[in-house]
Design a protein around this nucleic acid. Structure first.
Lengths: 192, 192
DNA sequence: GTCTATACCCGGATAGAC
DNA sequence: GTCTATCCGGGTATAGAC
């Protein structure tokens, strides 16, 4: 692995997250890298390719999870847990995906299913087979809650260096709490 | 009110929501309007001004709500309810705000407080005065859930024309359900 | 593997006629 | 109130030397 390539990805990740994909220029990346924009094109054929390099893994994971759904309805805890881990692993990247619509356009070209279609599947699975309107709303709420709470949890540690080694990882206690929250969201009101 | 102005806003709203702010060009708006890009500049001094025209009201409402927080801690149900209504009123616009970072840049120039600062305040208010880590996570979860569930509820009606007059408005039953969900999220796990 | 130089296009915005 | 024409800047990408 060219290690300049890795540096470019690291820099791009940071800039994309902070300023968005369209809000970041090749010149911005090159400046941070200490080279010129032309140098980037030795390592990547296009700007979109840099984005691809960043999102390939998390998107594959997303696709893998929704693939399981085809087999049959999973336990909500499993599904929600998988998404917590996905959000934690991809960190700030998760936010990037649905922030900039132009990112979606880039992504959807290289995916078997569109993001939108995958999300629909997840909602359907969370809402359950005989979902009424309330169940669908709760599924949306749970899905959104997981993603944002996970990102918030990681962000809370952003400054703290004393949290042992793996700064940026999701605290197991936080994971448990978030899962608990999400599962409770899915409960119909009658079960209150 | 120039009614061409209103048409431009309506068109821009739709395009911004669908393709994002940076993903929409003046040419796109002009095409839909049936004129040229130059014509837009008779009605608005810049592209950013069109965005302003669209977001002014919802942002003022957001600012008004956070203003109340300065006075003292509100009942969570009031605060959450206010945000459900805000999300419902601004519809798809709500999504626009935290999607494109360049939108944030435009907005923050004309706001007394930054969006980020306002969000922090809301989270703090929802988490409560003696908030532990779990309470903060629950606050984030509740805030995200409200926004997404409300947008989902409205989206569910998108196609249905038979829902009497006010298509696009939030069903009171949905509102109640979403509020119930959000309030439950804020409950500490012990209260399960 | 990185440079200089530059082509090319496109988006926002302006000038001035009608 | 809208047009034609055009400027300007900046962004992606390429050519070709080193």
């Amino acid at each position: 692995m060219s290690q300049t390539r890795e540096r470019i990805l690291a820099i791009a990740r940071e800039l994309f997250v902070r300023h968005g994909y369209t809000g970041t220029t090749n010149a911005d990346i090159a400046r941070e890298l200490g080279t010129t924009t032309a140098a980037l094109y030795y390592h990547f054929p296009s700007k979109a390719a840099i984005l691809d390099g960043l999102l390939a893994e998390p998107l594959a994971a997303y696709h893998r999870i929704t693939g399981y759904l085809d087999a049959g309805p999973p336990a909500p805890a499993e599904l929600l847990g998988a998404f917590i881990d996905l959000a934690a692993d991809s960190r700030e990247l998760a936010a990037l995906i649905d922030r900039d619509p132009s990112v979606l356009a880039v992504i959807d070209k290289r995916l078997p299913r569109t993001i939108e279609r995958m999300t629909e599947q997840v909602i359907a699975a969370l809402a359950g087979p005989d979902a009424d309107r309330g169940a669908v709303l709760r599924a949306h709420a749970a899905f959104a809650a997981i993603k944002h709470a996970t990102m918030a949890a990681i962000a809370l540690d952003a400054g703290a260096v004393d949290r042992a080694l793996d700064a940026g990882a999701l605290d197991p206690a936080d994971r448990a709490e978030i899962l608990r929250i999400a599962l409770r969201i899915l409960q119909p009101p009658a079960a209150d």
